[in-house]
Computed example of a mutant assay.
Amino acid sequence: MNPIRSSPSRWLWGLLAAVGAGLIWWHAAIVLPFAVSLILAYVLRPAVDALARRRVPRALAALGCLLAVMLAGVVVFVLLVPIVSQLAPMLRAQLPDLLVGWWLQLAPPLAKLGLPVPVSLAEVKAQLMDLLHNHGAEWGATLWQSLVIGGGNLMNLVGLALLIPMLAFYWLIDWDRMMPPLRELIPLRWRAGFTHFMDEADSLMGQYLRGQLWVMLILAAYYSLGLMLFGFELALPIGVFTGLAVCIPYLGFGLGMVLAVLAGVLQFTAAGEGLWLPLIGVAVVYGAGQVLESFYLTPRLVGERIGLHPLGVILALMLFGQWLGLLGLLIALPCAALATVLCRHLLNAYRNGAFFLTE
């Protein structure tokens, strides 16, 4: 008996797996929307199954769940409309005076340090005109190139936003028909373990989604109330947007904080109350909110349920963000949780000798 030696079929399966992984990596741009749509369908499948058990046609149930997800995304985007519509004219009207006021406050200390600074507003204007005259063409070309590249990326995102729900719809309506043949491809001795893994993954994903939803709702109420207490006029839309956008780790919180700072500075400066009150208010509300989310809400409502250590959470966010950008941040935690379940099952199989053949 020699457990180290492997049969030729195992080497063949390993070679086929390596070739398959290479082909998937080579065609990653094509595979990506199918993979994301499969994840979306997997997340929505319990809701679709629940509606189907209540005699709702499966196609209609799948369409309703997808529309609900798209509506949630639209709500988050629409929350930006009142914020931008009020901040844009205020910024256009107050920005020159704000810049002049800040320059008048910063110029004397910089001059005392021996740094060359303009001594008058006329000199500031002259230097700006000189910069525009000498570098305007270069900056314009760079801006145009950025807009072209950004526009191309935007069109790609729009295309994915239309393609992924359509693919998810077909995954959902044919899930029960496609999965049994795929399960038949699994070797018989592994089938029970695979079924157990999928049941555990289903339970874990449900717990993650429920926990994340509670975190978003609690933080939306907290940020709205906190900004209201400090007198922010846009407290409700900014607070709700920040709370709902925390599903995008770091980016949602950062964007909400920037909007709060901008809204507070413009509002309180126009009222002649200075900069300190809005800055202190944002620091207190968002600092306490980050502590609340990081040390209580997410560990209690999400982390403990999916079994991820904080170090694993940080590593997953960094890796998926590097691989897939914004989309990676969105799917990092659920994918990491599923990977944790898979590794646990593989480790148990390894300890039980499932990866070795005996002669």
Rank of each mutant, 00 (worst) to 15 (best):
V313T: 12
V76C: 14
F230Q: 06
P237D: 11
A141H: 13
L131K: 01
I280R: 13
W175V: 01
P3L: 13
V81L: 14
A18D: 00
P278N: 04
S203K: 11
G73S: 09
V265Y: 01
Y250S: 02
P165D: 05
A18F: 11
A270M: 10
Q207S: 15
M198I: 14
G254Y: 07
L154I: 05
L115M: 12
A126V: 04
V291E: 10
L209M: 15
Y223E: 00
A88Q: 11
L12E: 03
A316G: 03
L329N: 04
Q105P: 00
V302W: 00
A349Q: 13
W276D: 08
R210V: 10
D97N: 10
P334A: 14
R92K: 15
H345M: 09
D199I: 06
P181L: 03
A263W: 03
L229D: 03
V100L: 14
V285L: 00
F77S: 12
G152E: 08
V48R: 05
A28E: 12
L279S: 05
L311W: 07
M205Q: 15
G20R: 04
L99S: 07
W103L: 12
A62V: 07
L333R: 04
G274L: 05
S7D: 10
T340A: 08
L301V: 02
L262Y: 03
G303W: 00
I306R: 05
L128N: 11
N156K: 10
D176C: 01
T298R: 02
V19W: 08
L327T: 15
P3E: 08
T195A: 06
M166T: 09
L23N: 07
S120F: 10
G101E: 07
A62R: 10
A245F: 12
P310K: 11
A288H: 03
V56R: 12
V43H: 08
A35S: 11
L330C: 07
I173Q: 06
M257K: 07
R183A: 14
C247V: 14
L91W: 09
G73Y: 07
A270T: 09
L329D: 03
M1L: 12
N153W: 11
L333M: 13
G101I: 00
V74F: 13
G252H: 06
G226P: 05
F194H: 14
M257G: 01
C65A: 15
F241H: 12
V291D: 04
V81M: 08
R92E: 15
M216N: 06
L104T: 05
Q94H: 05
I83D: 00
L234D: 01
R183I: 05
D49Q: 11
E200Q: 15
G272V: 00
G252M: 05
R351M: 07
E233D: 09
L259V: 03
L227S: 07
R54Q: 15
G274H: 08
L255R: 01
N134V: 08
L91F: 13
P249D: 05
